[in-house]
Nucleic acid binder design. Structure first.
Lengths: 353, 353
DNA sequence: AATACCACCGGTGATCGA
DNA sequence: TCGATCACCGGTGGTATT
């Protein structure tokens, strides 16, 4: 069933679908008026996972199965929002003394939060699928005919060069991906800092790109196949994949990290800059890994001098002497999931083993 | 005239005062309904400078003249907000087809912005006055009797140790404070970066503490006297003082920087961390100045692991080898302007010449 | 079940330069 | 006068830990 509702045959189908979904407790808008969260005024909650799982339950935007894979993130997002508002209208009419749903409850900060997470999830899903096309080519020597992505120039098929692109959850310590040996080096470093009541931890990047070890540990098999959709099952797979590959990565196999934002303000630009500096320091200096690349993907560059800010030099490179390097290697205006994933795909041949 | 209105004799006084202020075009709430800002929905603007200039036109919170200098930032701020809401009620009643002022226009993000700036201004003003007490002691050997601050332990009066504490404006390049010679070193560094299309600039700290050069350039005379109030004239002096001392500071006289926040979120913690790292790198490595201290002053620690995040080690100190140091040397819960200024005052004897 | 935390982003008042 | 930029902060859905 297509759940970008304007693609559905009629509005009645939406009404009955949304009513059933609400009754099943999996609606995309939840009524918190009788169960308020302590210290908050929220009267209706956007059930983010349900919303995404519903709107994208039949294809991953930009990928195989998408009727028009060249649409923008903004389009997919506004479609999901329209779905949500329609569902809430169906499920929360005025009822005696109780007022009907009003959309102001799901605008403003609430929608900003959901939209930001959705952008990150859509990008991570498209990148997963792009990596799956790449990995199939690496395994078979043939680029998958059904892929919406093109084979990157100068790509040579070898199982040694398979790649996993993984979304990391909030609060994740990305060093958990490292092999025990590499992690021990990191932990020794941390302990020397903790002796002085200090630390140097990452506020984890949104998405990381990893060289799949060879031979391939079992947890990586999933990256050989694309996600067919973002139905609840696959959404859960996308967001939990990192747990399947912990303890398997050498520092040099940490190829790139991506910070993802729909928009920014000058003050909000600096979190990725700090993160990029710390990540490069830890991977480069502590773990002696090769230099990883840090990307920032942003949908909208207005409201701050984004390009200028991200020309900041990496402190690590400055103090090493020799060649300077930027902290953020590449800034990309990510407007369409397909183009964004293709852009990352095109960089994969550049990485040395 | 006391303009924390609950201290005023009666509500009528407020009404006539606010009506006159509005007619004079200096009201604390402006009607933008007939002159909308392009691309914004704002119907009423909080005239931040007018609001502060009015509410604090007879004393600086926490300082001489404050009837109760131990009140909290939260108190002064809520008083200013009450003034604002009352003034808007007086000046924007329903008028024919035009609806009355509604307070939702000045809640949410608008008030967040104003409250944040007000917090920074109140702290900067209290610190200015604490430094003035210090400087009078340095000049005369006697701690000013009228000061609300106490003489720090182990302080020794010498004109060599006078201090200026200055608020910096948005977007300011704090290296403009440096002497031409020091600035040339910095500019040479920048040019070598620019040759590679990079830079390493500061998103300026909110407040800086500087050793006043000896002999004292003319622009510093203002720091010998406290600000009597935050009337528009003195508010302007506070926010423009930095322009009077440009080109006078050696790197080693850059004693400390303070980042000021009322509250935070985990992502918003990282801008000061990046800034602290860059500032320490530039002052320490590029300018060979002594090590400056970076403070974070925050009113409310809830909503993020603030203490943990600010135990991050300085990348500069890690790469130098030798002793580690934190990027943020000191995190302080700044709830009261008087206590906050006293806390900074108590650190002044620690700085070597 | 409750709590703390995480990282999401958009609406802002003022300034500065065209 | 206008547009671009700056740095302000609070409400949020989900997760992990009590």
């Amino acid at each position: 069933m297509p759940l970008l509702f304007p693609d559905a045959p009629d509005a009645g189908a939406q009404s009955s679908h949304c009513a059933a979904c609400h009754l099943a407790g999996t609606g995309c808008v939840l009524d918190l008026r009788d169960a308020p969260v302590r210290g908050r005024q929220t009267s209706f909650r956007i059930a983010q996972d349900n919303l995404i799982g519903c709107a994208f339950d039949s294809f991953v935007p930009g990928c195989e199965g998408d009727p028009d894979p060249d649409r923008t993130f903004a389009f997919y997002r506004s479609q999901a929002k329209a779905n949500m508002l329609a569902a809430a209208g169906v499920n929360f009419p005025a009822n005696g003394a109780r007022a009907a749903f009003v959309s102001t409850d799901v605008q403003g900060p609430a929608w900003g939060k959901v939209a930001g997470d959705m952008y990150e999830i859509l990008e991570a899903a498209a990148l997963w699928n792009a990596a799956a096309s790449w990995n199939q080519f690496m395994a078979t020597g043939a680029w998958p005919a059904s892929s919406t992505f093109e084979q990157p120039a100068r790509s040579i098929a070898t199982p040694m060069r398979r790649i996993a692109i993984v979304q990391l959850p909030r609060g994740y310590d990305s060093t958990r991906l490292l092999t025990p040996a590499a992690r021990a080096t990191y932990e020794a470093f941390q302990q020397s800092l903790e002796a002085h009541e200090m630390q140097l931890r990452l506020s984890s990047p949104d998405i990381v790109g990893l060289r799949i070890p060879d031979p391939m540990p079992a947890g990586y098999a999933q990256f050989m196949q694309p996600l067919a959709d973002l139905s609840p099952f696959n959404l859960h797979r996308l967001q939990r994949a990192h747990a399947d590959i912990e303890g398997t990565i050498e520092g040099r196999n940490f190829l790139f990290a991506i910070a993802v934002k729909t928009s920014t303000r000058s003050d909000r630009l600096y979190q990725p800059l700090f993160e990029a500096n710390v990540l490069k320091f830890i991977i480069g200096f502590v773990l002696r890994g090769s230099v990883l690349r840090f990307h920032v993907h942003m949908e909208d560059f207005e409201g701050a001098n984004v390009r200028g800010a991200y020309t900041a030099a990496s402190l690590y490179s400055l103090m090493l002497g020799g060649d300077f390097a930027r902290a953020v290697d590449h800034l990309y205006k990510a407007e369409r999931p397909r183009d964004t994933a293709q852009a990352i795909l095109n960089t994969l041949p550049e990485y040395a083993i």
